[in-house]
């Protein structure tokens, strides 16, 4: 790690976005007192991670990347153990465990061994264990990596709900959409250094205007390019998809469509593409975030004969 300098406000959701090996997990392990920093300083919930590590541990909830769950324990046993680790008395531990298992939708599976749980269930159980002591700050290390879309959304909903209840959330992710959807602010990390930081909107605004991708019915492309050039800077077309960086952003969409219609050109599909956090990542680091293309396919990435949606 080098040059990581960040501050997360109480009640915020902060996403640490970066590719594998960028240093996200190392940062989290230092903040949750699992790894001693070799330099610099950090405070979590007002406590120094080195000098007052036990107080940090009392204040935080942690769900690590590996979902460190004992496959031989049942969900209920694990909740009880976690409650004991945080000093909850027996009755309260039982009540709290049951309450949280219900909250994450695992009440019916509570007495099954964790080894029989699906990936999504394990993540939800891991999240529930991190909440037994009602932590002020919740650390989630890649909470949805490897999950199917439904499980991912379930985790997102739960994180939002926790945040609305006042929990500060610090999460790491390699998914652009996750950072975009969940975070109040995003820190982009690459090779152990902070490449950019801000709200998703502000970061995207830094790198420029939105662009329009249009597919025109056969034979009309050249004429369409002339029309589109009136509304901004033309961009190189790709796989038959024409592109223009709009001068006035989204407000130019309707005039472009009208102008194409007036010119007798038939629009097969149209897509307004806003700058993404991957664009920000490219701008700051000179390369794409791994998996960004898979996550957010664009019309220009599809074969020319494949239908695109407007």
């Amino acid at each position: 790690m080098a040059g990581i300098d960040l501050e997360v406000s109480e009640g915020e959701i902060y996403a640490f976005l970066g590719p594998n090996g960028a240093g996200k997990t190392t940062t989290v392990r230092m903040l949750v007192t699992l790894l001693a920093p070799t330099g610099g300083s950090a405070t979590v919930a007002g406590f120094d991670v080195e000098r007052d590590a036990p107080s940090v541990r009392r204040a935080i909830g942690v769900a690590l990347q590996e979902a460190a769950l004992d496959p031989l324990m049942t969900g209920r046993e694990l909740m009880h153990l976690q409650s004991t680790l945080h000093g909850l008395p027996g009755d309260e531990a039982t009540r709290r465990g049951g309450e949280l298992l219900t909250r994450v939708g695992l009440a019916d599976a509570a007495d099954r061994r964790v080894g029989t749980y699906s990936g999504g269930m394990r993540r939800r159980l891991d999240l529930a264990t991190a909440l037994v002591h009602d932590p002020k700050v919740l650390f989630l290390d890649e909470p949805t990596t490897g999950l199917d879309p439904v499980s991912r959304i379930a985790i997102w909903d739960e994180v939002r709900r926790l945040n609305e209840e006042g929990t500060t959330v610090f999460l790491t992710t390699q998914y652009l959409e996750e950072a975009d959807q969940l975070a109040d602010r995003v820190g982009i990390i690459d090779e152990g250094k902070m490449a950019a930081e801000g709200t998703p909107a502000a970061l995207k605004a830094q790198i420029g205007r939105s662009h329009l991708e249009i597919v025109i019915a056969e034979g009309g492309s050249e004429a369409a390019e002339v029309v589109m050039a009136r509304f901004g800077d033309p961009m190189p077309s790709k796989n038959g998809v024409l592109m223009v960086a709009l001068e006035h952003g989204a407000s130019d969409v309707a005039p472009v469509v009208r102008a194409l219609d007036d010119a007798g050109l038939c629009v097969e599909s149209l897509n307004l593409v806003q700058p993404t956090l991957d664009d920000v990542f490219v701008e700051k680091t000179g390369r794409h975030l791994e998996g960004a293309d898979e996550e957010q396919p664009r019309p220009s990435d599809l074969p020319a004969d494949e239908p695109v949606s407007a």
Binding site: R57, V62, L85
Partner: peptide, 16 residues
């Protein structure tokens, strides 16, 4: 095994 599966991290991240 507890070290291998990361269970030790669960314990080390708790105030014990």
């Amino acid at each position: 095994l507890d070290i291998e599966i990361g269970f030790i991290d669960r314990l080390f991240a708790a105030p014990i």
